[in-house]
Lab assay of single mutants.
Amino acid sequence: MIVFVRFNSSHGFPVEVDSDTSIFQLKEVVAKRQGVPADQLRVIFAGKELRNDWTVQNCDLDQQSIVHIVQRPWRKGQEMNATGGDDPRNAAGGCEREPQSLTRVDLSSSVLPGDSVGLAVILHTDSRKDSPPAGSPAGRSIYNSFYVYCKGPCQRVQPGKLRVQCSTCRQATLTLTQGPSCWDDVLIPNRMSGECQSPHCPGTSAEFFFKCGAHPTSDKETSVALHLIATNSRNITCITCTDVRSPVLVFQCNSRHVICLDCFHLYCVTRLNDRQFVHDPQLGYSLPCVAGCPNSLIKELHHFRILGEEQYNRYQQYGAEECVLQMGGVLCPRPGCGAGLLPEPDQRKVTCEGGNGLGCGFAFCRECKEAYHEGECSAVFEASGTTTQAYRVDERAAEQARWEAASKETIKKTTKPCPRCHVPVEKNGGCMHMKCPQPQCRLEWCWNCGCEWNRVCMGDHWFDV
């Protein structure tokens, strides 16, 4: 396979590697080409510095992935760790964990309700045991953590790749202090920090972006993250068709209702045909949960890209028209025109101005929308079919299609509260000796007794199943 190397943020060049090629071997190839010592090179990928003893497969490097290699003399205490030698983080029983690669970060837990604080980093599902597709590297999971809308060759929703760059020099040479644990960490600028490894760059702020994971991409090709779309790892039924499908869209209502993408497309087109989208002054033209839940309008309007190009163009047109109407304007009634106009409040005669090729020149009556006339309008008909009709959803289907309910059931079956801080902690095999993952707590306690870890627990039921 081919990976592209950008040395000291210059133009990239291809390097041929195998899945079992080590990072140090990659350094040696680059060092020979650039005429520099291999031990002064640092390989940066997806916000993480890659260790010498890791392989291309370990690092989730795919065909035509772009890695950054910078030349920086080692500072005291760094060289041993980078070589894969006596790194205290690798000691058996050590409590410190390697910062998780962005290629394996899962933010789907952050669609849980606000009262489930902490689960994004504490609760991990076991539903990723799908067998890898044919042709994928051994052991590589097909679980997708992110979804994007690819405006490039795909023109559809695709699995996405999370990447990070330095907000100062805009190069992907920043190593994160810690990985993101929720969508806010990724979507809110300057929320996460790190250290830029580019020479002479003092940058410390992280800037995240997404790429389409279905095809090789260049540095400049980015895609918009659709953070309401998630892999259906909890096997929730769709609120409309009641099938279990994946991926799904999880509405931001209190129940976190789930809808499959085909039904979401149908829901949007139906509402669009009836012009029953909601115009929100802050958000724009949007839709609420299909069950009509309060405070559930979709905030990231790129989710409506699921409509496809033709329907999305209609959505944008109707949204612009609705904006004009909300501002007190009118639409030209001549067939084939429909231009938005903003006449004076007491102006009865409205002319669709033909300047700049935008208007048709038609003069019409503001009251009856017919060709302009003197005197009273002959008839004014009330528009028919403008009443909002509820999208029919079966109550039982709505009850079963809740992301929140599956989460709470998982928590109930696989977790116990920490005796000190009461945060839910998952036990997935292993011994009875637990350690609270909350940095402010870190209590060592017994899963069996529910009390602080002691010699009695150690001698009596340390390794009970």
Results as ranks from 00 to 15, higher is better:
204 T>M: 07
383 A>H: 12
460 D>M: 08
414 T>H: 13
387 T>S: 13
170 R>I: 03
156 R>G: 14
157 V>H: 04
338 G>V: 06
24 F>E: 10
34 Q>K: 06
324 V>S: 06
331 L>T: 05
407 S>M: 09
465 V>P: 15
355 G>E: 14
245 R>T: 08
322 E>Y: 04
109 S>L: 03
43 V>W: 00
189 P>K: 09
280 D>E: 11
156 R>W: 07
73 P>E: 10
76 K>S: 14
36 V>C: 06
270 T>K: 04
204 T>H: 06
369 K>L: 08
167 S>P: 03
49 E>F: 00
461 H>T: 01
31 A>D: 00
403 W>G: 03
315 Y>L: 10
209 F>D: 10
441 C>G: 02
160 G>T: 00
171 Q>S: 11
208 F>G: 02
360 C>S: 03
332 C>R: 03
34 Q>G: 05
209 F>S: 14
202 P>R: 11
407 S>T: 13
412 K>Q: 10
68 H>Q: 04
297 L>S: 05
17 V>G: 00
252 Q>A: 11
442 R>I: 05
215 H>Y: 00
29 V>I: 13
305 R>V: 07
235 N>R: 12
417 P>F: 08
130 D>L: 10
129 K>I: 11
156 R>H: 08
140 R>L: 09
397 A>S: 12
426 E>V: 10
2 I>A: 10
299 K>S: 11
421 C>V: 02
158 Q>K: 09
143 Y>Q: 10
287 L>Q: 00
422 H>C: 08
363 A>F: 09
368 C>M: 02
151 K>E: 15
36 V>R: 03
365 C>L: 02
195 E>V: 12
298 I>R: 01
153 P>N: 10
444 E>M: 06
43 V>D: 00
327 M>C: 10
348 R>S: 06
12 G>W: 03
122 I>C: 13
447 W>Y: 10
250 V>L: 14
86 D>Q: 09
124 H>V: 05
302 H>L: 08
57 Q>T: 10
368 C>Q: 02
289 C>Y: 02
313 N>L: 13
224 V>M: 12
95 C>G: 13
402 R>G: 05
258 V>C: 09
301 L>D: 08
73 P>G: 07
265 H>I: 07
34 Q>E: 15
205 S>T: 15
37 P>I: 06
59 C>F: 03
340 G>Y: 05
342 L>Y: 09
48 K>Q: 07
252 Q>R: 08
312 Y>F: 13
